[in-house]
Design a protein around this nucleic acid. Structure first.
Length: 426
RNA sequence: GCCCUGGUAGUUUAGCCCGGUUAGAAUGUGAGGCUGUCACCCUUGAGGCCCGGGUUCAAAUCCCGGCCAGGGCGCCA
């Protein structure tokens, strides 16, 4: 016989099955011992009659999170709240859990975030965290589904890089044999180069920033979803991102209802046109708060904006040139602003992108203007000089999106093994 | 890096303001009991004041420093 997964048992009434899983709950009454068994697919009640001493002698030794094997008959039950139960003919303990455990897997006694992270080996077994990461898996799957359907090529770019190229975010140094290298903070130039060959590319991977940020939204290692498309304008890219978001979120609500029910989080409505608000308009909305043109929009500022326009998905477009990275393409008729966008849900930035400079000479000019060394970009400049089409793209924070979808409070909750300024373990 | 708040059994939490109690509870864990439980229930045992210094006859409680955590800010292609 094969392992039966616990979600299958309603179809196996009166059949003998073999199940494997973890002891989730134990209730000990006068005549019966009730074990709630949990596996990756669901839960089932094991009903043990204490008069069956052979089985009871094994079962009375059970503790929370012990791993067991049960062979038994599935019975429909009016009394059992799950509707079905398993009457065992044999129980084996495969792996003992040493007590006390670091946290309560049933979630009846909650644990602090720090405890939850330290004991990820247990908190991932909790229904809520389990659901979050099943949603993450589905989210990535639907992104791939959407893009493969539209002729995109998935790429894998290097995470160990030679040059600390830009100002801005600090990079982690890595000893690379006899030279110094860095952990990539984005696939930017590599995905642009790839778009010059494949036209439409994407990558889902982790990147690194050595910033001592202590916020509920920043990590030193974060999962990014990057897209780059040749012959796309920034409005084309926003169209793509908007339809992708609608597809992915609707599909999640359709296919992963079980997980969202466990999390008890309200569905986010995406059934509207995602507004594209010009940076200029944002400034005029925020003028009463002393925000002026040229200011970056901090989280605090964006919270004020959310208060004005409400909590929804929207784009902020046409950012001042000096607020955007060196590769961002300016508007031809007004070089003070760029063909760029941020994509937000309320105050939280989820993605940013835009059109890129695709002419080598222009890029060199721009690098010099920003006090960056063109020599460090020689590969990229050659690529631009070798027939680089106009192109645009974006980078999206997967965990920030997951945070919103699962109504979580801290990004560390939705990352399996988060890395922040103070946490390198587990 | 700055500001605020906190740190009490494995976990979660009361007590702290107003110093003196066998430091209380829940859950988990050991023992026993209980008519099918479903946050089962009942009896009973074990288990705790972050670290260092100070004030005081006396510190979980007040003060200072450290470490750790959470939040706010800053930093942040």
């Amino acid at each position: 016989m094969k392992k039966t997964y616990l979600n299958e048992i309603p179809n196996l009434v009166d059949k003998e099955i073999e199940v494997y899983g973890w002891v989730h709950e134990i209730r000990d009454t006068a005549k019966f011992l009730f074990i709630i068994l949990r596996d990756s697919a669901g839960k089932a009640q094991i009903l043990i009659n204490k008069e069956k001493t052979e089985i009871y002698n094994v079962a009375k030794e059970l503790h929370h999170e012990d791993v067991i094997y049960v062979k038994g008959i599935v019975k429909k039950s009016e009394i059992a709240r799950l509707g079905y139960e398993i009457i065992p003919n044999e129980i084996k303990i495969l792996s003992k859990a040493k007590h006390p455990l670091a946290l309560d897997v049933t979630g009846k006694i909650n644990a602090e975030l720090n405890t939850i992270l330290d004991a990820r080996y247990l908190s991932l077994r909790r229904d809520d965290y389990n659901a979050i990461f099943k949603i993450q898996s589905a989210l990535v799957r639907y992104i791939r589904e959407f893009l493969y359907e539209r002729g995109f090529i998935e790429i894998f770019t290097p995470k160990i890089i030679k040059f600390a190229t830009e100002g801005g975010a600090e990079l982690f140094q890595v000893k690379y044999f006899d030279e110094i290298s860095y952990l990539a903070q984005s696939p930017q130039i590599y995905k642009e180069i790839c778009s010059g060959a494949f036209e439409k590319v994407f990558e889902i991977a982790s990147y690194y920033r050595a910033e001592k940020s202590r916020t509920p939204y920043h990590l030193t290692e974060f999962l990014s979803f990057d897209v780059e498309c040749a012959f796309y304008s920034y409005h084309d890219i926003m169209d793509l991102l908007e339809s992708l978001m609608k597809f992915v979120i609707n599909k999640l609500y359709e296919k992963n209802e079980k997980e969202f029910n466990i999390l008890k989080c309200e569905k986010i409505n995406v059934d509207y046109k995602f507004e594209r608000i010009k940076y200029d308009e944002v400034i005029s909305i925020l003028e009463p708060y002393g925000i002026k043109w040229g200011d970056d929009l901090t989280q605090h500022t964006l919270k004020l904006l959310e208060g004005k326009i409400g909590k929804k998905f929207f784009f902020i477009i046409d950012w001042p040139t000096e607020l955007k990275p060196f590769y961002t393409h300016e508007h031809e008729d007004n070089p003070k602003i760029t063909k760029s966008f941020d994509f937000n849900y309320g105050f939280l930035e989820i993605a940013s992108g835009g059109e890129r400079i695709y002419n080598g000479d222009k890029l060199v000019q721009k690098l010099k203007k920003m006090n960056l060394n063109p020599e460090n970009f020689s590969l990229f400049i050659k690529a631009l000089d070798s027939g680089m089409p106009p192109h645009a793209g974006f980078g999206l924070g997967i965990s920030r999106l997951l945070l919103i979808l699962t109504n979580s409070k801290n990004i560390k909750e939705v990352v399996l093994f988060p890395r922040d300024v103070d946490r390198l373990i587990p």
